[in-house]
Simulated assay, not measured.
Amino acid sequence: MARPTGEPTWLEYSANGIADSIDFYRRIFGWEFVDQGPEMNGYQMVIAAGNAQAGFMDTAGMTCPEGGEIDPSWDIYLAVDDLDARLEKVKAHGGRVVLEPTEVAARGRFAGILDPTGAYVGMWEEKGFDGYTFSAAPGTPVWFELMSMDFEASTEFYTAVFDFDVTLMESDEDDPQPDLRYATNAPEERASAGICEAKSWFPEGTPSFWRAYFCVTDADATVAAIQEAGGKLLDGPTDSPFGRVATVEDPKGVTFQVNQPLGDSAPGGV
């Protein structure tokens, strides 16, 4: 069954040459990679906890809309009910289509956009494949977050285009920056993504961006493994109301989050 419009449905890693990245993530998360064959240009499906969780795409020979090499990244896809209609909404609300609709036989259709604050996000209309399987198992994605440099513009756009039911979270007395706003795309248990007011943390002119969180059983051990494998620790690990979190970077400079759930302190592994 297709996910509701606006719910994260897929993760995709892209880089110019992905062999080294596959080795890195296999080492960190224990992922299995399944080559989708020449008809899919060697697209690699990530299998974790017995299900498809993400894809890896080699961008060698491809260029961005401005003509330069495509930067390596983790990209988030949001589900849509009608890709063409939603793309019209993107244009009407200040966004820009940078990847035109493309058909994936017997699976679905996708496109890529820039929102008004500069964040790239994919759109996926399911026609046989509804995306990743949420399980909260180690090595699987558990949260998705827009780091917004213009909170009002972001909430207005994602409400208009993706039907976000923007729900502000209340700050608690221990919050080091209680004036910064954070909203989810739906109330309580229906929430699957967040919008974080992040302008004060980045240099002026930084575009907004989406990021993903992966579940691990031991954040500190995972960070150590990432550093040993050639990655970097950017922030944390830090305890939060939702778990022990760290911001890390892979050897190609692509950032992501690792999250150890509350009460989970199993040593070793991911």
Rank of each mutant, 00 (worst) to 15 (best):
D179N: 09
L87Q: 02
R244Q: 01
P178S: 09
Y43M: 15
P267C: 10
R181W: 05
Q44T: 14
G68T: 14
G17C: 10
E103P: 04
I226C: 07
A193Y: 04
T9D: 08
V166M: 12
R27S: 11
D239K: 01
P203L: 04
D20Q: 10
W210G: 06
L168K: 02
Q36W: 08
I22T: 15
F214L: 10
L83R: 02
D264S: 08
E189K: 07
C196N: 05
V142L: 03
E125I: 00
V248E: 02
M149D: 09
D172A: 06
S21E: 11
D163H: 07
A49D: 12
K232I: 02
T9L: 06
R244P: 01
C215K: 03
D58V: 15
E100F: 15
N185S: 09
V34I: 06
P237A: 03
R26V: 14
V104F: 15
S265M: 10
G268S: 11
L99V: 13
A160G: 02
K232P: 00
T140W: 11
M149Y: 06
M57V: 15
W201V: 10
V245H: 05
A19G: 13
A198G: 03
E125V: 07
T238K: 06
D264C: 07
V46D: 11
G139Y: 03
E7V: 11
L87N: 09
G236L: 03
C64G: 14
L11H: 01
K89E: 08
G268F: 06
D172L: 00
V46R: 04
D150N: 12
I76C: 09
P72V: 11
R109C: 00
S21M: 13
V270K: 09
S240N: 11
L87H: 06
S148G: 12
Q36I: 04
D82I: 04
E66I: 14
A193K: 01
P141L: 09
F33E: 13
E173A: 07
A212T: 15
D172G: 02
A136L: 11
P241I: 11
G55P: 04
A119R: 02
T59P: 14
E126P: 08
V254S: 13
D75I: 13
D23K: 10
P65L: 14
D175R: 03
D264F: 05
A246N: 00
L87G: 01
D264G: 10
D175K: 01
F29R: 10
F151K: 05
D115N: 08
A212N: 15
G243M: 05
G205S: 03
K89A: 11
Q260P: 06
A85D: 03
A49M: 08
Q44M: 15
P178K: 00
R107S: 08
E228A: 12
F164I: 09
F157V: 05
E66M: 12
S240W: 05
A198S: 07
S14F: 12
I226W: 00
L99C: 03
F134V: 14
E32N: 12
P241W: 00
R244D: 01
S148I: 01
P4T: 09
